[in-house]
């Protein structure tokens, strides 16, 4: 469900630009902040506001890895699998995460707490391997750190 307040903000974004469609990206961010993902209902709503086809909205959402079309967990691990991180052991990091959480990349744990994702370069190669946890970067990350971190997060939840 999109709240009335968010709907109003999205409408305002559409009329803030000479071309309505220019407001789509910030609108997608707004909706994802509120709901955690972009639902089919949200896509229909956005297509009406921005006078674009549903397919065009979906194209935009799926072009960017940061937008989600399905609900994600409370904690989202995004593991960079590009060259620098791969050379510095991102594969083991991914494997460790996958084993501890019991899910494959792209999946969410049944309790809705953790989501695991592969991601393209996070632009922090100097600190490889890099994992992004929600909005924060974990740099020079090791498998041990990952184990400890997840134990802590599990306590928290």
């Amino acid at each position: 469900m999109i709240s009335a307040a968010t709907k109003e903000k999205v409408e305002a974004l559409a009329s803030a630009f000479p071309q309505r469609r220019s407001g789509l990206m910030p609108a997608l961010h707004l909706i994802q902040q509120e709901s955690g993902y972009i639902s089919p209902e949200a896509t229909v709503f956005l297509s009406q506001v921005f006078e674009l086809s549903r397919a065009q909205i979906h194209e935009t959402i799926t072009f960017y890895h940061m937008f989600r079309t399905r609900p994600a967990g409370r904690f989202i691990f995004q593991v960079c699998t590009n060259v620098s991180c791969m050379l510095r052991g991102s594969e083991e990091i991914m494997q460790t995460l996958s084993e501890i959480l019991g899910i494959q990349p792209g999946e969410t744990t049944p309790d809705g707490q953790f989501t695991l994702q592969e991601t393209e370069c996070l632009a922090a190669c100097g600190a490889a391997p890099v994992v992004q946890l929600n909005e924060e970067y974990l740099e020079h990350v090791t498998c041990r750190q990952i184990r400890e971190l997840i134990a802590e997060l599990r306590k928290e939840s």
């Binding site: 089919p40 086809s53 065009q56 979906h58 194209e59 799926t62 072009f63």
Partner: peptide, 20 residues
Amino acid sequence: NHTLGVKNRGADTMICADMD
């Protein structure tokens, strides 16, 4: 009719209808 679009990008790109 504006039904068709493409989802994802790069090697994962696929033709799709509406919101997939």
